[in-house]
Nucleic acid binder design. Sequence first.
DNA 1: ACCAAAAATGAACAATGTTCAATTTTTTTC
DNA 2: GAAAAAAATTGAACATTGTTCATTTTTGGT
Lengths: 199, 199
Amino acid sequence: MSKDNIGEKLVSKGRALIKEKGADFLTARKLSEASGYSVGTIYNQFGNMDNFILIQNYLTLESLYNRLAKLQTSGTAYHRLNLYVKEFINFVIENKNLWFLVHNFHLHNNSRHFSRVYLKRVVQITKLVENAFKSMFPDIEVPERTLSIQVLWLSLFSMSSFITTDALNSFSKINKYTLCELLLNTYLAGMKVLEKAST
Amino acid sequence: MSKDNIGEKLVSKGRALIKEKGADFLTARKLSEASGYSVGTIYNQFGNMDNFILIQNYLTLESLYNRLAKLQTSGTAYHRLNLYVKEFINFVIENKNLWFLVHNFHLHNNSRHFSRVYLKRVVQITKLVENAFKSMFPDIEVPERTLSIQVLWLSLFSMSSFITTDALNSFSKINKYTLCELLLNTYLAGMKVLEKAST
DNA sequence: ACCAAAAATGAACAATGTTCAATTTTTTTC
DNA sequence: GAAAAAAATTGAACATTGTTCATTTTTGGT
């Protein structure tokens, strides 16, 4: 069995573990037991567990991108952005445990640990939003538009961490879709105003 | 020395440790060593480390509230909201390590572990924003307004987790103040539009 | 069949949260 | 004040982490 195959098997087995039992369940020993490979082999393959999680997060972002990319051609830009958000929340809810890991990791690791490949995934998703923005706000200067996109996307991304835990429920009974859609639409309405004001 | 005094000493010593060396440095043994009390005493006082962190987070939220409350009477509602946001970011930057712990905790604990007292602090801060909203948007129905406040406050709160880590820097060179102020002002502009539309 | 290189192993280490029998301190009782 | 009882404090011990690395096993070429 080739080296890559072991790595792939560990990744897919680990992914199943996270999905099924939660991110906390993913430990070197549990993965070893579940996969049949020794702890040492895991370390030979990935160096350390952080790298392993980085790969998992990369796959999660890739999977999210593929879901959103399918909506690229649908409807008006405004309609599409709403679809993106709805699909984003669907994805987060369906992949709670995986998404938890994404947030948990970014919180515990400094930027220098993020690989370029990993970041490219984030940028890729941002590009989708950016394209919709382009047709919605043709009159806004590019730097301002880029800024606005980053702010909106970061807001939605960071807020989605609340969906992976129950913390939100104790603060408010607010529906998760409503929460994100209201943010999107209020923000878009605000941009329309600011667009007119600047011309 | 009374029981409460030990608890207070541990809390203040622990707080100093977090501020100085970071949230990861706060372990039962390190706190024991730094405070002079044994590990067992820490557990007698707080039951477990999670409770200890809960108290620290409670104090952090209290401290944030006090900072924001001072601005309660200044300027117009719009001006005040901008001051709140600016002061919020100041606080987060000044108390990076403590704020990290707030986010880290909410991510790792389900709602049932949040004490009522802890949540009250969050609600208290929300009230400040709510009051400013009241005078800015008198025509919006109360339920809609409450929803909008929660969305805005949650966005800012969750986005602030990026300020405590360097993850943001690898995604964008965007200034942290600009980031939050743009979110606030675009959102407010959007609310103005939606307010008119609903009447 | 042999041997060297590569890969896989899992016992061992340090550090974590947590427990609890043993010790020390404080309070009560006479 | 001494003895007894109660309460508080202690830190060694346990289970679980990530991680390392000498040893063993497998592989591949001659």
